[in-house]
Structure formats: structure tokens, C-alpha cells
């Protein structure tokens, strides 16, 4: 029984990836290719003296360090990928439940032995855990390229402190941290996920404007009527960019059970429950 539920859920996840492959597979892959070309082009433009100087100063910086302490050159490479992931996630969530109703396929899915809660959960798992995995893998390709380039340059300029294996371990550890950072961000922003899903299930047209407009209207009404800004403060509590960056695995688990994350998941679950019940209204 449990096995059949797991299989069904796996099929739902596959369906999400098939339907959103452009957002979650093609976008990071294209970005990875584009950045590889740009890096190669930049590398060819830099004079060899500057390259030698850069490699030797990098060698001096990482000399004797553990691979787990030298993630700083690799982590910034993931910034464009994380930005693209955020944009793609918003587009995906806005259309996640709206598109099914618009094209009428919600009736087909409701005739299948799949409950509304499973459908909505598959969308949440896709955006919170599966999409970050692809993003981390795409940034991993770029990091691998940088590792190879730095190792080759280090060998050709005789900088012995830059060892290939040290760099490779540091690069792969960075990929894990990029994944954990993306997952942590998805969990901290879970109320936003629930909010967009609720309006995606509700709106007959323009779900994005409904979600954004509804929140701005509530912010205004709270300030205007009650002269308070609890909603604004709640929003502010989740906008510190350093809250999302994971620099070691222990740090991730510490934040995973933090109050801010757990209360966010709890309140987000309320909105997700609303979105699940909203699925019964199929226009």
C-alpha cells in the first residue's frame, strides 16, 4: 500500500518535470552553457602574466587549507543559477494550479486515483527539493569547469599548492551547499509558496496579479485601518539574504529546526490547505 503511494507520488513528480522541463531543466542548462562560453571568452582575453599572478595568489590563499574551508571561490558562481531558480519557481507556482483549470485537465486528473493533496504536494516537492537539485547540478558543471581550469593553470604556472583533488572536493562540497541553500530558502519562503498556490487555485485569470495585488492590498488595509504593520514585519523577517546562505552542513541542520523556519512552514501549510480545498472548484 505504502509502496503504491510512493510510486504514485514518483509518477506525479515525473509529470511535473515533464510539464515544466523548460523551466527547471532547460533554463539552468542553457545558463550553464552560456556562463561556460563567457568564462572561456574571458579566460582567453586575460593576459598570461595576470593569470599567473591570480593563480599564485589563489594558491597562497588556499595553501594548507582543508577543502571544506575553501568553498568561497565557488559559491558565488551559483548566484545566477539561484536567481534563475527563483524566477522559474515563481512562474511555475503561479501556473501550477491555474493552468490545470484553464485547459480543463483538472477534470482528467480528478478522475484519476490521485487526490488533490497529492497533486499539490507534488508541486511543492518539485519546487522545494527537485528543482534545487537540478540547479545545483547545473552550477556543478560550471564549478567543475572552474576546478579543471584552475588546476591546469596551477600546473602550468608551477603553483604546487593548488592540488586538483583538493579543488575537486571543495567544488563538490560547494555543490552540496548550493543545494542546501536552495532548499533552506524554499522552506523559509514556504508561506510565499502557499500564498501563490492559493491564488493560483483561486484566480480565473491573472493569478500573479491576484497574488501580488492581494498582498499589497492587505498591507495597505492593515496600516490604514489598524495602524499596525504585522504583515510587513512578517515579510521583513524573511527577506534577510544572509538567512539563506549555508556555509557548512551543521549550519543547515541548525537552521532547519529554527523557530523562523518552523513557524513559516506551519503558516504556509495553512495556505496550502486552502489551495488543496480550492481545487474542488473547477470553474
Amino acid at each position: 500500500m505504502n509502496n503504491s503511494i510512493a510510486n504514485r507520488f514518483l509518477i506525479l513528480l515525473k509529470r511535473e518535470m515533464w510539464e515544466s522541463n523548460k523551466l527547471f531543466i532547460a533554463s539552468p542548462a542553457v545558463l550553464s552553457g552560456l556562463l561556460l562560453v563567457i568564462l572561456l571568452w574571458v579566460l582567453m582575453q586575460i593576459p598570461s602574466e595576470i593569470k599567473a599572478e591570480g593563480v599564485s595568489s589563489l594558491g597562497a590563499m588556499i595553501d594548507g587549507s582543508s577543502p571544506f574551508d575553501i568553498v568561497f571561490p565557488f559559491m558565488p558562481l551559483a548566484i545566477p543559477f539561484v536567481v534563475v531558480l527563483y524566477i522559474c519557481s515563481i512562474i511555475y507556482l503561479v501556473n501550477a494550479l491555474y493552468h490545470d483549470r484553464k485547459e480543463g485537465s483538472v477534470l482528467f486528473w480528478q478522475s484519476m486515483p490521485v487526490s488533490n493533496i497529492e497533486t499539490v504536494l507534488s508541486k511543492i516537492v518539485t519546487v522545494s527539493f527537485v528543482a534545487p537539485l537540478i540547479t545545483a547540478a547545473a552550477s556543478g558543471v560550471l564549478i567543475l569547469f572552474v576546478v579543471l581550469t584552475v588546476a591546469v593553470l596551477g600546473a602550468s604556472y608551477g603553483v604546487e599548492s593548488i592540488g586538483f583533488w583538493t579543488l575537486l572536493v571543495a567544488g563538490m562540497y560547494s555543490v552540496i551547499l548550493i543545494y542546501l541553500t536552495s532548499v533552506l530558502a524554499a522552506l523559509l519562503l514556504f508561506p510565499t509558496t502557499g500564498w501563490i498556490l492559493l491564488f493560483s487555485a483561486y484566480a480565473r485569470s491573472l493569478p500573479f496579479l491576484w497574488a501580488i495585488g492581494g498582498f499589497i492590498l492587505l498591507l495597505f488595509l492593515e496600516d490604514f485601518i489598524f495602524d499596525s504593520q504585522f504583515l510587513g514585519n512578517w515579510l521583513q523577517s524573511r527577506t534577510g539574504s544572509f538567512d539563506y546562505i549555508v556555509l557548512n552542513i551543521g549550519d543547515f541542520f541548525q537552521r532547519l529546526f529554527s523557530y523562523d523556519l518552523l513557524i513559516g512552514v506551519l503558516l504556509g501549510s495553512l495556505l496550502v490547505t486552502g489551495a488543496v480545498y480550492m481545487r474542488r472548484y473547477t470553474d
Binding site: 483561486y202 492587505l218 499596525s228 504585522f230 504583515l231 510587513g232 512578517w234 503558516l267
Partner: peptide, 25 residues
């Protein structure tokens, strides 16, 4: 359903704000 869900969400956010003594900035 939308009004009910949003109202419940706001009530919980306000209760959490009061409980955590978040400044009404």
C-alpha cells in the same frame, strides 16, 4: 474559502507578531 484562509493566515501572523513582540515598525 479564499477569505476564510486569508483571514486565518492574517490572524495567525498577528498572534505570532504579538507573541514574539515584533515591533510594529
Amino acid at each position: 474559502l479564499l477569505l476564510g484562509t486569508v483571514a486565518a493566515y492574517i490572524v495567525l501572523v498577528v498572534i505570532e507578531g504579538i507573541a514574539m513582540d515584533r515591533d510594529s515598525k
